[in-house]
């Protein structure tokens, strides 16, 4: 199980990487943390002609508060996000999700940007970013553009990023006082990709759900904002009737995949269980705050 032949270039700058992307198109792959790309290379499932290693591009690194947004550089390692005081303080949802991301050795190398760029349907970070209304900054040799998370995730491993673009950073609005977030997922084993998962961000006033973003992942081809379920709970107190309405609406929001991890029916069931548990917890957290 050895990787097929390829060429390798260590990018000296973002512009260098972009020029190589322009030159090689989809025959090139960006190598960031490599925790998803390397297995596919070793298994010969992926056959790029050129790997563009961006690991030494300082411009893509770092985590910092910028006004009312947190900038997470695409090359921020999972471990940096996990240990970041900025994230812990301003993005509690991501802080809660982070321990679910793989294992220590993978977190030491895998990157936030890599996870968002690949958009694995079971990955935690895309779901969190979508729940928090993040903006992704991508860059090509023509310049930079911003893509709202809401329009970034297109399908199975499919995003709005073009072949000639590199994901540079994510800009994530800080979680405002008065809001709560809850992250839940169900994975067969700790650190595995989940079978069902929910990233929830809400404002709950005196038991009434004023605003909410419920993003479901793992069961769907892409992280999915459950607009109908959200509509069912918005402006309502969290009681049996609201819950039943939300769980019913979920059947229209979600279109779970049947795969090795289970049937679509089971995944819908699990997402409903998570919905109940997450909003119970959100309400409890709001009350405690």
């Amino acid at each position: 199980m050895k990787a097929p032949k390829f060429s390798y270039v260590r990018a000296e700058s973002v512009d260098h990487a972009l020029a190589l992307l322009d030159q090689h198109g989809d025959e090139a792959r960006i190598l960031a943390g490599g925790q998803s790309l390397m297995p596919t290379l070793n298994m010969r499932l992926s056959r790029p002609q050129l790997l563009i290693d961006i690991n030494r591009l300082d411009a893509l690194k770092g985590i910092a508060l910028q006004g009312d947004r947190v900038r997470i550089g695409a090359l921020a390692r999972h471990v940096e996000v996990l240990n970041s005081p900025v994230v812990a303080k301003n993005l509690p949802l991501i802080a809660e999700a982070m321990p679910h991301v793989a294992h220590v050795a993978v977190r030491n190398r895998g990157t936030f940007g890599g996870s968002v760029a690949l958009a694995d349907p079971a990955a935690e970070m895309p779901a969190c970013a979508l729940a928090l209304g993040a903006t992704f900054v991508v860059q090509s040799s023509k310049g930079r553009r911003e893509i709202a998370a809401d329009s970034y995730f297109k399908g199975l491993y499919e995003t709005a990023r073009a072949v000639n673009e590199i994901l540079v950073e994510a800009l994530i609005p800080v979680e405002k006082p008065g809001t709560v977030s809850v992250f839940l997922e169900l994975a067969r084993r700790h650190g595995d990709f989940a079978m069902a998962g929910l990233a929830c961000h809400a404002r709950i006033d005196k038991g009434v759900i004023a605003e909410a973003r419920l993003v479901y992942f793992a069961s769907e081809v892409r992280p999915t904002l459950a607009t109908r379920a959200i509509a069912a709970i918005k402006g309502k107190p969290w009681n049996d009737a609201t819950r039943d309405a939300a769980l019913a609406a979920l059947a229209d929001d979600l279109d779970p995949m049947t795969n090795l991890h289970g049937s679509a029916a089971m995944k819908l069931h699990l997402q409903r269980v998570l919905t109940r548990r997450a909003i119970d917890q959100a309400v409890a957290r709001a009350r405690a705050a």
Partner: peptide, 9 residues
């Protein structure tokens, strides 16, 4: 066996 979550559910 194996007793997956789906089997239990």
């Amino acid at each position: 066996q194996p007793m997956t979550p789906e089997v239990v559910l």
